Structure formats: C-alpha cells, structure tokens
Amino acid sequence: MPKVMQIRDVPDDVHDALTEAARAEGLSLTRYMLRELEHLARVPQVARENTAAIRRTQEKVQGRADRKAILSVLHEGRGE
C-alpha cells in the first residue's frame, strides 16, 4: 500500500527550484518528487549491480579490466 510522506522546513529557494523543474517537465510537484524519489531509491541497487559486474569482469580477465570490458559486462548483465 502506498505511503504518505511529508517533508517539513523545505527552504523557499529549494521549493521554488523543484516547482520550476516540475513545471518545465509538465508535471505536478507531487508527481515530479515521486519520480525523483523513485530514482534516488534505485541508486544503491544500481551501485551494487555495477560493483558486481566489475568483479565478474575482473574474474573473467584475471585482473584489472579496462572500461570497454566493464561496460560490456554491465550491458550483458542488464540484458542490453
């Protein structure tokens, strides 16, 4: 079940910037903030997945891997 969140003491300049960003994308402030929070919540998971991909790549190449090899394994792990 969805939860309700309330954020207190948001500085005026921060509120204004978020409101303007939402307006620029044609979203309500609530919809914009929900999207941003969803993105923020995924960041740790993406970091863990990237770390795992780097380790798998290093194991495959028996040591340090270059950027191309790491990106290849990342894309492979994401099904891209």
Results as ranks from 00 to 15, higher is better:
K3N: 15
K3C: 11
V4Y: 11
M5A: 15
Q6Y: 13
I7H: 07
I7P: 11
V10H: 04
V10M: 09
P11D: 12
P11E: 14
D12Y: 07
D13G: 05
D13V: 04
H15V: 05
H15I: 03
D16T: 13
D16F: 01
D16R: 09
D16A: 09
D16E: 11
A17E: 14
L18G: 05
T19R: 08
A21S: 10
R23H: 13
A24T: 07
A24N: 14
E25Y: 00
L27H: 04
L27F: 02
L27G: 02
S28M: 00
R31K: 14
Y32P: 07
Y32M: 00
Y32D: 04
M33V: 15
L37S: 07
E38K: 08
H39G: 15
L40Q: 11
L40F: 10
A41L: 13
A41W: 09
A41N: 11
P44G: 03
P44H: 01
P44D: 03
P44V: 02
V46T: 08
A47R: 13
A47L: 12
R48E: 15
E49V: 02
A52Q: 14
A53V: 01
R55I: 06
R55N: 14
Q58D: 07
Q58G: 13
Q58H: 06
K60W: 09
K60E: 13
V61E: 06
Q62T: 08
G63E: 03
D66T: 04
D66Q: 04
R67T: 08
R67V: 10
R67D: 11
R67E: 12
K68H: 11
A69C: 02
I70N: 02
L71H: 08
V73D: 00
L74Q: 08
H75F: 09
E76L: 01
E76A: 02
R78T: 01
R78F: 04
G79Y: 00
E80K: 07
